[in-house]
Amino acid sequence: MPNVTYIQPDGKEVTIEARDGDSVMETAVRNGVKGIIAECGGACACATCHVFVDEAFMGKVGEPGPLEDDMLDGSAEERNACSRLSCQIKMNADLDGLRVRIASEQV
């Protein structure tokens, strides 16, 4: 099963083994990783699961879709080129070792 590492705004890291097909958000929330709120449960409706994807993985993770892109425009912490909503990134073997930094503000 693929691993994903979450980096807190203060630099603290935690690595979790994800269930194949689960999103980066679901993996975080179910395991109690702080800072990913995800009030809408993954419907791309709340923009409270904002992460910055490690540049090395941006190619594999890909760009946000149009709806997600608009949601990110309203995110609490200003977006950058590596911003994604973690509910929209599904884990698979290809993403093993993925690293994401959690936005310091979600709401």
Binding site: R19, D22, E26, V29, R30, N31, G32
Partner: peptide, 15 residues
């Protein structure tokens, strides 16, 4: 069903 869980069973034990 599993993806509906708000927290994993282990989370409650750990906390």
């Amino acid at each position: 069903e599993e993806s509906l869980e708000l927290r994993s069973p282990a989370f409650y034990v750990e906390n």
